[in-house]
Design a protein around this nucleic acid. Structure first.
Lengths: 231, 231
DNA sequence: ATATTTGATTGACAAATATCAACGCCCCAT
DNA sequence: ATGGGGCGTTGATATTTGTCAATCAAATAT
């Protein structure tokens, strides 16, 4: 297993693990000593909502969905984590519980780092702490976008948002094969699977996208952006 | 104007200003030197979404609504700030812009503290930084609750949530007079004003609440909780 | 006092969305 | 090959929610 390196820093909203460039050599060494990797199969649970938060993970290979579960059976797919995103959660420095579940979407490798180590590092590395604050603030901006999208847009706009998210943020290509099920797409867009399917079909009929099974292609991106903006 | 004091600390979700108990005497002195207060009239804008984030404020008197505005004209009322909540925003340590508007709901006094001072303090007070991380994580938990409530619950459940929020978190009484308009209640619950009014009336007809104008009273709290949980 | 404005309310109706049932398809285990 | 089981798809229908227009009431201006 390769060690984390002090290479380029990254201001990406996703707190790539090279945020570790802010660590001292000694701190970096400590992290690399204690961290370990686990490989998960598709649909396996990496973190379970409600469970104890003892470690922060970094997705090093594969893809995982971040899922908010409520009292009924419905779920909201908050976002997707890809290499090399950090997945922590609001339980850190608060109640040390998980407030969402993380589920592997394919064969996925997660690197576990003790939450206590994070805490220790922060308590004597203020740059790292401030980078964490910056990261949390970017997550919050993302939540704001999700809140307004999910509450103010119609289904067409929400599905357009989902497709744009997958193409731009996850697969970085307008043509992609996904391991997300239709139900996952629906959970991301806060609607039923049937509604998601109908709207995907409409987009296909209108020539905005094409798909067959799990292979998608965005044919008219501007149109998708318009649909997203119109709501 | 009274100075911030190093009295009791507070683990409240709202980062009460007595989070300042984590400051050194010197830091506290610096903050008290430069901060200043402004009084706002009802409906006046304290922060405008999109504007520059140069200061963090603390609501010292009154009540203010935190409002997400989207491209169309619709707004989402995210939460309400009361004394002595801090109101910063995700622009801090990121793009230094405001990502929501803050609007006074009544005569409201806001105390302004330079964002730079916050940054300085953090860079040599790791307890303060970590307290900030804890605060941000609690805000994120709140966003999760809002996300699942607003996307998964029907209007009845959402209005029930709004009423419980006002009674429990804002007015700390099951009987309260509010300066929120029906439109504000609707914006908090992500529905139209007409729908909010209809559901309030239903609750009144069923004896769950009573109200006249802006005076509300929760008559059957358990019932309201049930409605909230059923969705 | 009277006109005007603004927010609250109501009803009729239209649009958006979920539910339910049925069916097809593909993969897998027997 | 064959019979589930799960996922995807479709259509019919019911429910939820928004829109539009009208009215009402309280507050404010003339």
């Amino acid at each position: 297993m390769a060690s984390f390196k002090k290479d380029s820093c990254c201001n990406d909203c996703n707190l790539k693990m090279n945020m570790f460039c802010f660590l001292s050599d000694e701190q970096l060494h400590k992290v690399n000593e204690s961290r370990f990797e686990v490989e998960f199969n598709p649909d396996e649970v990496i973190f379970k909502q409600g469970g104890p938060l003892t470690h922060i993970v970094c997705i090093t290979k594969g893809l995982a969905k971040i899922k908010l579960e409520d009292d009924s059976n419905r779920a909201l797919l908050l976002s997707i984590a890809k290499p090399t995103n950090m997945v922590g959660g609001p339980g850190f420095l608060t109640d040390y519980r998980h407030h969402f579940s993380v589920v592997a979407l394919e064969k996925t490798v997660a690197c576990f780092i003790e939450a206590n180590m994070f805490k220790e590092i922060m308590s004597d590395n203020t740059t790292f702490s401030m980078e964490m604050i910056s990261y949390l603030n970017k997550r919050i901006m993302m939540h704001y976008e999700r809140l307004t999208s999910l509450t103010h847009k119609h289904m067409h706009g929400r599905i357009a948002d989902a497709l744009l998210y997958l193409a731009d943020a996850i697969y970085t290509s307008d043509s992609f094969t996904t391991t997300l099920s239709r139900q996952d797409l629906a959970d991301y867009s806060a609607m039923t699977k049937e509604s998601a399917i109908r709207i995907l079909k409409e987009f296909k009929d209108e020539g905005v996208i094409s798909f067959s099974g799990d292979q998608f292609e965005i044919l008219n991106k501007q149109s998708l952006v318009n649909i997203s903006e119109k709501g």
